[in-house]
Design a protein around this nucleic acid. Structure first.
Length: 601
DNA sequence: ATGTATCGCGCC
DNA sequence: AAAGGGCGCGATACAT
């Protein structure tokens, strides 16, 4: 086999989906230990990669360089990936040396950083990206840099050499080979994009701006809030005005744990509840909350909508748990639970003459924990036909008052909170606060849990200890790094979330080929597809077939939502009390429904 | 001008 | 001794 180290210079990374032909400007490659070749004859590079004895290696090539070659130069990337002839050093670097949570490692995996770490400081010259940036500034854009500029060529040559040097040090294990298949399938999302209801986005942006304006004026008139900037309630002068306003209505201004003025939803709701007879305070809280509650999701979608009327989000497995990030725009954070926000999903549409079909995995983090801990009593909660939270309620509170044939356990909701406590290491104080019970009762519930599921408790203790000295490995073989000092909460959580992620991805790998380019979004435990109306039943059956399998006796359960005319429409059965979730309702010119977010705007 | 920290909204 | 995990995105304040 020949190892081809590859890098491309292009018209700018963020232009990959809209630039068109000419996006790839200059290619650099080296075959094994041979000289680095740079060329504008991109077709010749594709021809080289198509040779069956070639393995191509490069940094982020699976998401960027190779898709660009596929898009404009006929590269058969599907085949190369299927033949296991692609090595992406970014994916390998993450597996070899996993990131911490939070933002601390956000710049740790660019080619320069990886090379410095792996090769040692002395072997990396220059300062990477700044050379390119300077050239782009000097010539008026990446696409204007002369392809024979010595600095441009030198930069490209250096990156090819770095990749080649890295290849000798990085370890490609079975997990990361699979990860290439996973990420390639996920890359269907940016490649194909998600259709946007552009007219509706523009309307919602305008309507939101109007609402914000009205509320700012109210706060300005009543409390002297300044009108400068986009969020005057968060500026120094604004906070000062609000503190005075709270004092004027006779309460201590609410504080965050760090002492700042708390203007968040929870703080204001709690304050209001504690002084429900103080009408001036209630009014202040409500107006402030209404202003703070305005999100700019529609604007974000608009900002990222391309000339094709679609968003092409970035897909990345950068999270400490391995969970998938979907950004620019962030589809994982669009409204769902709040009535006021779920309508955000109406901005995203199926392809013409298609419908959107969402499928989600039931209680997938819990199943992942069950697979890890091997506690038969815990695993039994996930047996076919059982509802985790009902079973958990029965385990903690007993079967009294629950008729299994008649519906849910009366304390299912309480049990759900405790389930999450199980996965994430919540303490009695936190559970008490969360569930509105006293600490003694919370302690009792956690104790019952530990007693009923001894294998689960033992596993948590073991992985907390294990995480103290080393990187943890999920059931699928993904390596995850826990922050020193956070073993108690992060160790069980990362294994649960990391394995849940790969249960989802296993389903993705099992999908029939025709559905892959129809994938539109992934939201941790949910996949969204755009499928032709006359193939919905086919699609549903095949997707559910792919997503449902058993691991060590624990079954994975998938459920399909409603085929929808937009993404919100997919949840009309799930949210029967919110009629506006249904597109058919939104298409009416008016309605009488109390609280309708659509007609009541 | 650009980047970081902090907060706040939301999602799973 | 006690301990709820992971994110994305926008805004402001502040450092460089």
């Amino acid at each position: 086999m020949k190892l081809v180290s590859l890098d491309l210079e292009t018209a700018g990374a963020e232009r990959i989906w809209d630039y068109g032909p000419g996006f790839v400007r200059l290619a650099g490659y080296a075959v094994d230990g041979g000289p680095v070749v740079t060329t504008t004859d991109i077709g010749s590079v594709v021809a080289l990669l198509h040779e069956l004895d070639v393995i191509v290696i490069g940094h982020n090539i699976l998401a960027f360089d190779l898709p660009a070659l596929a898009l404009h130069h006929g590269l058969d990337l599907d085949r190369m990936v299927a033949e296991d002839r692609v090595i992406d050093t970014l994916l390998v670097a993450r597996q070899n040396d996993p990131p911490l949570s939070g933002n601390v490692d956000s710049r740790r995996y660019n080619l320069d950083s990886v090379a410095r770490r792996v090769l040692g400081e002395g072997k990396v010259v220059g300062d990477g990206g700044s050379v390119l940036k300077a050239l782009a500034t000097a010539y008026g854009g990446f696409e204007m840099i002369p392809v024979d500029h010595p600095d441009y060529v030198r930069y490209l040559v250096q990156d090819v050499e770095l990749v080649r040097a890295l290849a000798k040090h990085l370890v490609v294990d079975d997990y990361v080979r699979r990860e290439h298949l996973v990420m390639h399938r996920l890359n269907a999302i940016p490649r194909n994009g998600f259709r946007v209801d552009v007219a509706l986005v523009e309307r919602m942006v305008a309507e939101q701006a109007e609402r914000v304006e009205v509320r700012k004026r109210e706060l300005h008139g009543r409390y002297g809030l300044p009108l400068t900037g986009k969020a005057p309630q968060r500026s120094k002068a604004g906070i000062e005005a609000l503190e005075k306003a709270f004092a004027d209505v006779g309460v201590q201004p609410p504080r965050t744990t760090k002492g700042a003025l708390a203007t968040g939803k929870d703080a204001l709701t709690a304050l209001e509840a504690g002084h429900s007879d103080n009408t001036a305070l209630v009014e202040l809280c409500q107006t402030l909350r209404a202003l703070n509650g305005e999100r700019s999701t529609a604007q974000t979608i608009l900002d990222h909508t391309g000339p094709d009327g679609r968003v092409h989000p970035d897909i990345d497995a950068r999270q400490a748990t391995g969970r998938i990030s979907v950004t620019r725009p962030g589809l994982t954070v669009m409204g769902k639970r709040d009535r006021a926000n779920i309508i955000e999903r109406a901005l995203l549409l199926p392809d013409e003459s298609d419908v959107l079909l969402p499928v989600d995995l039931a209680a997938i983090d819990g199943r992942a924990v069950a697979i890890h801990c091997g506690d038969p009593d815990y695993a039994a909660l996930f047996a076919p036909g059982k509802d985790l939270h009902d079973e958990m309620a029965a385990a903690i509170f007993g079967e009294d008052g629950w008729d299994r044939t008649a519906g849910h356990h009366p304390r299912r909701g309480d049990a759900k909170a405790i389930s999450h406590a199980t996965n994430y290491g919540m303490g009695a104080a936190g559970l008490a606060r969360n569930a509105g019970i006293d600490v003694a009762e919370a302690e009792r519930q956690l104790a019952v849990l530990a007693m009923k599921f001894p294998g689960l408790a033992a596993w948590k203790a073991a992985v907390r200890e294990e995480a103290r000295g080393q990187v943890l490995v999920t059931a699928f073989g993904r390596r995850v790094r826990v922050q020193p000092g956070k073993e108690y909460t992060q160790a069980p959580a990362f294994l649960g979330q990391g394995t849940a992620r790969d249960l989802m991805m296993e389903g993705l790998l099992r999908l029939p080929e025709w559905l892959v380019p129809r994938l539109r979004a992934v939201v941790h435990d949910e996949l969204v597809f755009s499928v032709p109306i006359d193939r919905v039943d086919d699609a549903r059956e095949q997707i559910l077939g792919a997503l449902q399998f058993a691991v060590n006796g624990t079954p994975v359960l998938a459920e399909a939502g409603d085929p929808g005319s937009d993404w919100a429409d997919c949840y009309r059965s799930e949210k029967p009390k919110w009629p506006e979730v249904a597109r058919a309702h939104r298409e009416m010119s008016a309605c009488e429904e109390f609280g309708c977010v659509w007609h009541g705007r």
